Amino acid sequence: MPIQTVDVVYTAVATAENGRDGRVASDDGKLDVVVNPPKEQGGSGAGTNPEQLFAAGYSACFQGALSVVARRENADVSGSRVTAKVGIGKTPDGGFGLTVEIAVSIPQVDAATAQDLVEKAHQVCPYSHATRGNIEVKLTVA
């Protein structure tokens, strides 16, 4: 798969200190959070963690992609919700990997239309582009 070219219109900048057990902040000061490993990984769980931040970004981005697709299809996605679940675990080669499940609820449309909109949003979403072919991403429609 060739590398996608992008005409960049915005660049987010964030800096981490002390990795998974420290702090991460954006250059504009709008994001400044303590990060700690979750208890399931032997940490304190006192702060957020990279997987939660990724889930937050992916769900918001996917919701935006869903809105773009809905406008194109003249579909009503008002009241819709997108939940991203990001899992982390060991890979067979001894490294670590991620899994993602995107659960979408679109109460204003029938199940078939919702499924179609979700599949199309998955083709539009930049996070989906970035993860495609790299990690398992499961889509569900509630």
Rank of each mutant, 00 (worst) to 15 (best):
G29A: 12
D32C: 05
G64F: 01
V118W: 00
A103V: 14
R132N: 11
F62D: 04
V6N: 05
K90G: 14
D27S: 09
V68L: 12
V118G: 01
A16F: 05
V35M: 10
S67Y: 04
H122F: 04
Q52P: 10
G95T: 15
K120D: 02
G29V: 08
A65V: 01
N134L: 01
D27K: 07
E119V: 04
E73A: 08
K85V: 13
V109D: 00
Y58M: 06
R23W: 04
A25C: 09
G133S: 04
C125G: 06
P37K: 14
V104R: 00
A65F: 03
E136K: 10
P37H: 10
H122A: 03
V69K: 03
D93Y: 02
R20V: 10
P37F: 12
T11I: 09
L117H: 00
V82S: 06
S80K: 09
L139Q: 04
S80N: 13
K39Q: 15
V104Q: 00
G94S: 10
A56K: 13
V109N: 00
L98S: 05
F62C: 02
A84P: 10
T83R: 06
A60C: 12
E136Y: 01
Q63F: 06
G64Y: 03
T140Y: 00
V9K: 13
G47A: 06
P2S: 14
G19R: 13
S128W: 05
T113N: 01
S44D: 07
R81F: 03
G43S: 09
V104I: 13
K120A: 14
A16L: 08
A112E: 15
N18A: 15
A56R: 11
V124L: 12
A14V: 15
Q4H: 12
D7M: 03
A65Y: 07
P50D: 02
Q41G: 13
T91L: 11
R71P: 01
A65H: 03
P50A: 10
N18P: 04
E51K: 07
V100N: 03
V6R: 12
D32N: 10
V86H: 07
G19E: 05
G97N: 06
R72S: 02
L98A: 10
G22L: 07
T140R: 02
I106K: 00
G29E: 02
A130F: 02
D28M: 05
R81M: 09
R132K: 03
G57K: 08
V68I: 11
P50E: 13
E51N: 05
T99Y: 06
R132Q: 13
L98I: 13
I3K: 09
G19A: 14
S67N: 13
